[in-house]
Amino acid sequence: MSFGGPQWPQQPQDPYERDPYQRNQDPYQRDQPPATPDWSALAEASAARTRRKRLLLIGGAALATALVGTVIAAAIVSADKKDDDGANLADTTSAAPELPTDTAKPQPSFSSVAPPPPPDPMDFISSARKDTAPLGAESLFPGRKLTMGDRVHKKGATASTTNCAAAAEDGLGAVLERNGCRRVIRATYEKDGVAVTVGVALFDTKEAALRAKEQTVGGVTPLAGSGVDGFCRAQTVCLRRANTLGRYAYFTQAGFTSGKKVTKSDRAVFQVSDDLGAFTFNQIYARGRAQASAAATAPAADQ
């Protein structure tokens, strides 16, 4: 056991607390004198700021001067342009227009009458009075073959007669004579065993030709020869058709050279008939077009 006075509580010591008695200080440490400002550096910074301000002032003044000069130049150019425009206007308005001094010279004139329309080809092929161009089997059916698309039809015999009844059969001759037929021109073509004869009958007017078509019975007589055998004889069936254009009535009769009867399924026969009908139509119209063209150029040729 121990004896003694009461133990007082002790404050803990801060190991970093400064010794009040300065016992831990370096005996050789001396107080340092306070630092002095760098007057030279401060002077250089102040001079740099002064130079920068001076440069900014000089640049702003130069820019303002340039802008003022530009505005003044634009104003001068605008004023000059207005003066020029005024001078030009004065020149154009002050000068009096020159009047022709020689009024004796003839002046160009223009007719107020419209030129006549070109002749209509149908006018020439609708009346014998105007349809006066030469006409024959060779001019209506020229060449030795007929080409329609990729189909080539060999040309056979041709014939022309003023005895219209002799060129028709089974009642058609009487129809032609009754309506004033003047002439019948025939031609035959053949392709792959199918032959067709086309007969063109001429009348004085298109009305007479139309009546003959409407009264049609029978058909044109088939024309054999020149390499095409006889076809569409008695006791067989052939394809007969009739049509008109102007004062021309034309008839076709098509069939097999073998004598076979034509039926509705025989497309080859119908095709040959179509080709010859279209060709005849075009030839008749071309005749009218040629005469119309000649009539249109006739006045110019007479001048």
Rank of each mutant, 00 (worst) to 15 (best):
A96T: 15
V77G: 05
A64T: 14
P299H: 09
E177L: 11
E190I: 13
G69A: 15
Q10L: 03
A45E: 14
L42R: 11
P119G: 11
V200A: 07
L172M: 13
D192R: 13
V175H: 03
D84T: 10
Q303K: 11
Y285I: 08
S111C: 10
D38G: 09
V272A: 15
V228T: 12
K260I: 02
G277H: 05
G199N: 05
Q25S: 07
R247F: 10
D275P: 06
A212F: 01
P20G: 09
T236K: 05
L176R: 01
T257E: 09
P299G: 08
T93I: 07
D150W: 08
V262D: 03
N243T: 15
L172D: 04
D19M: 02
A41V: 09
G4Q: 08
P33M: 09
R241I: 00
P121M: 12
I72V: 13
G171S: 10
A209L: 06
G227V: 05
G4V: 09
T147M: 08
G149L: 08
V269G: 01
A290Y: 02
S139R: 14
P117H: 12
I185V: 14
L210C: 00
A48L: 15
D123W: 07
D83I: 03
R51F: 06
R178S: 14
R183Q: 15
V175S: 05
V237M: 08
T65N: 03
K82M: 06
G5Y: 04
D102S: 06
D150R: 15
W8Q: 01
G288F: 03
A79N: 13
Y189R: 06
D19I: 01
T297W: 05
A187P: 03
S2G: 10
R23I: 03
A35I: 11
L67V: 13
V184R: 00
A64P: 01
R241L: 09
V152G: 02
G60C: 13
E17K: 00
A166K: 12
L176W: 03
A96C: 04
P34I: 04
P33K: 05
T101N: 11
T70R: 05
K206I: 00
Y21D: 11
T158L: 09
K264I: 08
A224F: 08
A195P: 02
R144H: 08
D120F: 11
P119M: 12
G288Q: 04
P34M: 07
L135W: 12
P20M: 04
N282H: 12
V269A: 03
A79V: 09
F3I: 07
C238N: 07
L140S: 03
D31K: 04
V228H: 01
L202Y: 00
S265C: 00
A128V: 13
D131F: 05
V68S: 13
A61W: 05
V198W: 01
A301V: 08
P115C: 11
